[in-house]
Amino acid sequence: MSESVHTVAAMPTERRPGCPFDPPEALMEARERGPISRITHLGGSAGWLVTGYDMVRSVLADPRFSNRKELMNFGDFEIPPAAPGEFLLMDDPQHSRYRKPLVGRFTVRRMRLLTERVEQVTAECLDAMEKAGPGVDLVAAFARPIPAIIICELLGVPYEDRGSFQENVDMFMNGEAGDEELIAAYAAVQDYLAGLVAAKRANPTDDVLSELTDSDLTDEELRGVSLILLAAGLDTTTNMLALGAFALLRHPEQLAALRAEPALVDKAVEELLRYLSVAKTFWRTALEDVELGGVTIKAGTTVTLSINTANRDPERYADPDVLDVRRQESGHLAFSHGVHQCLGQQLARVEMRVAFSALLGRFPTLRLAVPAEEVDLRPETADIYGVKRLPVAWG
């Protein structure tokens, strides 16, 4: 079977004009040819691309595939190990050591208790929108501040520090900064987090970071954990809120269904997560030779996992390219799968449910203020896909 496996020259990145929500066409074509393809990584090494739902899910759950940063084989690129505390890029037992103290702080119950605070923050953002309107950038007014305020409160970032802190976070996460800007912003965030950890050690407050100072984690490890929580709790949710609003505005029949039946919001959130898959790509490296889909993945080979095509796989979902807020099937991979499944997924769900419900309730005539093709999207090369600016109006 290996002789018939499709070859993709490089990771496809271009989306079809007018189709900002669909994966790159070449990726979709690769999946149609089969769930696994050969690929040449950007650094020149030979690897594999997995595009089918079942196979992506199986790799994510397979301990023979590593998530260790330093084992990623991209050819010319030498990657250092993850910094202490940055557990998303580690395997067990190190991964579990960092994740375990966090699990009890991100339970479904605890995140639901945050609902009232998310509702307050959302209402304040919508009040400011209404006052400034009827034309605003929905990213700056709504999608970014809601998760930013919540994650800052969870980490215990003082109110007076949030402006400069968020500015530096945005700089190194948005995929647009030049090398010098990116390095400076990243260093500034690291320095700030180091100071924040020290402050929580000295004077604990009512926040997750203060609670973690009671664990056996060092200051350096707490800084790394804080950075992971920041990345997971801010950038992905910001872009889900922005791109999700854009998708609903571009699908008026789905928007109308959600307005008519507010109870559909839970299904709508899961469907938007599946349909958009803003965290679109993961990587794993084989620790030993692994048979997968009729081919042998050699030890040391890095596999690219295409989450957005997996979540559009017609063998898993009926009419996968259709946005359907009434869809019954779930089990999407937007939050990954296996031991690395997103720790903050319940928080993201709470924020999305509250934010979308409140936005549509407050602004029943919300619409795009520019033609859809003029909406400014993040480059496909960014780790997290989304909208940079979303001008909207109402009334």
Rank of each mutant, 00 (worst) to 15 (best):
L292F: 10
A348W: 03
S330M: 05
V197P: 00
G195K: 04
A141N: 05
D313Q: 00
R112Y: 08
C125E: 00
V197W: 01
V265Y: 07
T281R: 14
K388W: 08
A132N: 11
Y192M: 02
D191M: 13
A82K: 03
V392M: 08
T40E: 12
F335T: 11
L230K: 10
L222D: 00
N203C: 15
G133M: 04
E374I: 07
L71V: 14
Y385L: 13
T296D: 01
P391M: 02
T107A: 07
L234M: 10
K69M: 14
L287T: 15
E116M: 13
L366I: 12
F172W: 14
T309K: 07
A83S: 15
A348R: 04
G344T: 01
A30H: 09
R57N: 11
L377K: 00
V350F: 02
L255S: 03
L155I: 13
E180F: 11
A242W: 00
Y192A: 03
A369H: 08
S37I: 02
S37M: 02
N168D: 14
E373N: 11
P12C: 08
L126F: 04
E380A: 15
L347D: 01
G163E: 15
L366C: 05
P147D: 12
V197Y: 02
L377D: 00
G135W: 12
E288R: 13
R64D: 15
R284W: 04
L305S: 11
V325R: 00
G34E: 02
M240G: 08
A257K: 09
L241W: 03
D76M: 12
T302M: 09
E70P: 06
E181P: 06
A26I: 07
A141I: 06
A198W: 01
C152Y: 05
L241D: 01
V56L: 10
K267W: 10
T218Q: 02
A202T: 15
T51W: 09
L255F: 02
L368S: 10
L102Q: 03
L287D: 11
N203Q: 15
A9Y: 00
D22N: 12
V278N: 06
K131M: 11
A231W: 08
G244M: 04
I151G: 03
E181A: 14
V339A: 13
G52C: 03
F65W: 11
K100L: 12
L258H: 00
A369I: 06
F172S: 05
D137M: 04
T213N: 07
T7I: 08
D321Y: 12
